[in-house]
């Protein structure tokens, strides 16, 4: 009887410890600070104000997972940003760079690297060039199922379906296909589908459509913001 009781006690203690682990998802390193600094400019060298730089970490608790901000700051009118960040131990530190201005769409970056932490006390971004995003919509009207292959030679091309918001929904592990080629299927039920191609460099995009036995090949220049092409099959 006693052994059963002590068994229950042990299980209860283990459960409480696990719960405690779940409640304290991230450990911040004692006695450590990281200086994050840099200057954001356009390709022409003009300073960009309002770029938000954040240090983040993955929270890997027993029951929870999410992201938390360790520090964040906005670039000033000279494009300069300088902030002091906490560090995590253990954990991975991520650097998140996003434009907060609605006036134009600029590149955003999230870089996660465990080597940021442990040793580093300085993350110097230097002069960081942010390019404007060029987006082109290819509207396809079709009455039957269509297989398509969309390919671009520019390494930074993103290819998405439907609208801007879906661009970020790709699996991060699928980087190669995200940036170079996308092959998929357009269901006949939709009748109108939009492929949206975004890039920061002028580039040529090749589109191959296959509907039944018919095959069509197109070539588009993605070189202006918010251009649009229409294809009727």
């Amino acid at each position: 009887m006693n052994s059963i009781k002590s068994g229950y006690t042990c299980a209860l203690i283990v459960a409480m410890l696990l719960l405690l682990q779940a409640c304290t998802p991230v450990s911040i390193e004692n006695n450590k600070r990281i200086l994050v600094q840099g200057k954001f400019v356009t390709p022409e060298g003009a300073a960009i104000q309002g770029i938000r730089v954040s240090t983040k970490t993955d929270i890997k608790g027993f029951l929870s997972r999410g992201q938390g901000t360790l520090s964040e700051a906005l670039s000033d009118e000279n494009g300069d940003v300088s902030m002091v960040s906490l560090d995590v131990d253990p954990g991975i530190l991520c650097l998140d760079i996003k434009n907060t201005s609605n006036e134009r769409r600029l590149q955003s970056f999230t870089v996660c690297d465990s080597s940021f932490s442990r040793k580093e006390t300085l993350l110097d971004l230097g002069e960081f060039v942010l390019k404007e995003i060029i987006g082109t919509s290819i509207i396809i009207r079709h009455n039957s199922d269509v297989y398509y292959t969309l390919r671009s030679e520019a390494p930074s091309v993103r290819i998405g379906i439907e609208d801007w918001n879906e661009l970020s929904s790709y699996d991060d592990l699928d980087l190669a296909s995200k940036y170079t080629t996308r092959e998929s299927f357009l269901n006949s039920e939709n009748q109108v589908d939009t492929l949206r191609v975004t890039t920061t460099n002028n580039s040529t995009v090749y589109l191959k459509l296959q509907s039944g036995l018919e095959e069509y090949t197109y070539e588009f220049e993605v070189n202006e913001i918010d251009a649009s092409y229409e294809i009727d099959l």
Binding site: C23, T24, P25, V26, S27, I28, E29, N30, N31, I59, G68, T69, L70, L86
Partner: peptide
């Protein structure tokens, strides 16, 4: 911290 975890200097 804003995570709710504590640390010290």
């Amino acid at each position: 911290s804003k995570f709710g975890t504590n640390f010290r200097d």
